[in-house]
Design a binder for these strands. Structure first.
Lengths: 210, 210
DNA sequence: GTCTATACATCGATAGAC
DNA sequence: GTCTATCGATGTATAGAC
């Protein structure tokens, strides 16, 4: 067994702790935000001592940045399934509708994704670099891929593809913020299908099919 | 002088303190968020003792709710100048463009408005009632007034006015979040005029003028 | 009503045993 | 490397003088 090798065993043990700390810290930061998360909570959630947390990450701010960089660059960098090339060769109505449905489905059901957005926006004043990391690794790639798609379909006849992308993404994001994150579902109800249909209609209105 | 009346003088003094506390607490909560704002900071910012803060508002959570209710129901309830009736009788392109310009101008230059939105979204998980108050007193009135306008102009021929309103507001809000609040101005630049022009174009594309 | 002073818990961070 | 124990600072909240 490789575990009999003391060096490998030690290294592995430390890496396991590091991952446990990241996981625990992620859970706590997403639940409580930065200021309301104590290092004791992190240590308890990770199943290690507080001193171990500090020996691995230095201080609270470094730990927070490590957690958020991880989330920004890995967990939530999916670009919402837009990376699939084959989907870009279908009818605009179908593609737009599929994109929008996918985005809304992801954002609606995934609670941790909502917590993630809450942190990004809520802490963007005190952690501007975190906000910029989100822009660079999440928002910008999404915008660029969608823009690329719009431009690759001249039949859409969009006067300003870049701006049109913002209209589409803004519509989606605002819907999730209002209905889900701000708990407006029962106060200002709106079926997502109506939004998707309207959006698709507005963008593809000039096409011959309509 | 009315100040010679001890009763009125006392009452006034207390009210002055209450207002000073609210003002100081508002400043601190908007700057630091809920958890990172201490009652010492509030007391110092208001120019009173900590005990006075507690005697007026009970505890930190009650003070926070009082501050945010004030912001939601007074300071940021403006409905972005949509209440003026005369503006609703002009050409849709002009009105839409004016609305969008006003909304973006308000949101872009007003730093405290951005801080306010950061708190609403950032604390919406731990203060759901605050989020619902925002929906009821800020978002819902805006949506309803804009919907009313859309419906009062059948010439717009909108298949779904309610959904179209969400498209418009979402576009505006997302733009401010990305460019201003998340500091994306230099990373994913976009002139607001292009957004407004595109939005107006998409919504009024069917009109005879175009 | 308002203050100073303080109680008591928890915070971030570290020392020292193992 | 990881733990327990603890430091000093700071947090919320209150008691008691005026």
């Amino acid at each position: 067994m490789t575990n009999s090798d003391p060096q490998i065993s030690e290294r592995t043990k430390s890496e396991v702790k590091t991952e446990a700390i990241l996981k625990g810290a992620m859970k706590e930061f997403l639940k409580n935000g930065y200021a309301a998360t104590s290092m004791d909570k992190v240590a308890k959630s990770a199943g290690v001592s507080k001193a171990t947390v500090y020996s691995h990450f230095g201080d609270k701010e470094k730990l927070f940045n490590a957690v958020m960089q991880d989330l920004v660059k890995d967990k939530f960098q999916t670009v919402m399934g837009l990376e699939k090339p084959q989907s870009l060769e279908q009818d605009p109505q179908v593609v737009l509708s599929a994109m929008a449905t996918k985005m809304l489905a992801d954002a609606e059901c995934d609670r941790s994704r909502q917590d993630f957005m809450r942190i990004i926006i809520g802490e963007s004043g005190r952690f501007p670099e975190l906000a910029k990391a989100y822009i660079n690794h999440v928002a910008k790639p999404s915008i660029e891929i969608l823009t690329k798609y719009f431009k690759s379909h001249p039949a859409l006849e969009l006067a300003d593809p870049e701006a049109t992308v913002r209209v589409m993404m803004g519509t989606m994001v605002y819907f999730v913020i209002l209905q889900e994150m701000l708990h407006g579902k029962d106060i200002v109800p709106l079926e997502s299908e109506r939004l998707i249909k309207t959006l698709t209609y507005l963008i593809t209105i000039e096409l011959p099919q309509l």
